[in-house]
């Protein structure tokens, strides 16, 4: 049962991700990204990580992608303005992308286990996550503050009027 669910979710994820790239209209692309994020949240639930699933939906699908959509509509970018690239560049991109794909497939082949098994079944629960975050990973948690402070200062600096 779980395995079938996993296959269905994976098919939706990969399909939506591909549609994101192939749709000509940027608004459709964003909508497909949101669908991708939702199905990834489904994967998190399969791994018994409810908190991550909720965060994925609220932060990524909810906040960030809606922001994207709003910006796209403000800038009126819903027409496709794709510039065509020279054939040589297209071929080069295809070859290098294909090579990367091949390498990744080869490296996954040996260690591939398809069923969603997490090392510790309850690692993704809020209680355990919070425990780890505030004991073992306390220092990275605090150091993130520097990153966020710098990002905020940078965003204000860049958007401020003279």
């Amino acid at each position: 049962m779980l395995l079938y669910l996993f296959y269905i979710l994976s098919a939706i994820t990969v399909g939506c991700a591909l549609l994101t790239i192939f749709s000509k209209n940027p608004v459709y692309s964003v909508l497909f990204v949101i669908a991708t994020f939702f199905s990834i949240a489904g994967h998190f639930i399969l791994l018994n990580a409810q908190f991550l699933a909720i965060v994925q939906v609220i932060v990524y699908a909810g906040a960030i992608m809606v922001l994207f959509l709003t910006v796209l509509m403000y800038l009126n970018l819903n027409k496709s303005v794709e510039s065509s690239k020279p054939l040589l560049i297209k071929i080069a991109a295809m070859v290098s992308g294909g090579l990367l794909f091949l390498v990744l497939i080869a490296s996954f082949k040996s260690g591939l286990s398809i069923a969603p098994t997490s090392v510790r079944g309850d690692a993704g629960l809020i209680k355990n996550l919070g425990n780890t975050l505030f004991t073992e990973y306390l220092f990275p948690f605090e150091a993130t503050a520097v990153l966020f402070l710098s990002t905020m200062a940078g965003a204000i600096t860049l958007t401020r009027k003279k």
Binding site: F139, P140, L147, S150, T151, G154, A155, L158
Partner: peptide, 25 residues
């Protein structure tokens, strides 16, 4: 001595640099 710290360090460094590179608006 932990990959999380490496990643956080790289991000703190890079994100700040992106802003600084664009500081002549």
């Amino acid at each position: 001595s932990n990959l999380t710290m490496l990643f956080l360090g790289i991000e703190t460094l890079s994100v700040s640099l992106y802003t600084l590179a664009g500081s002549r608006k």
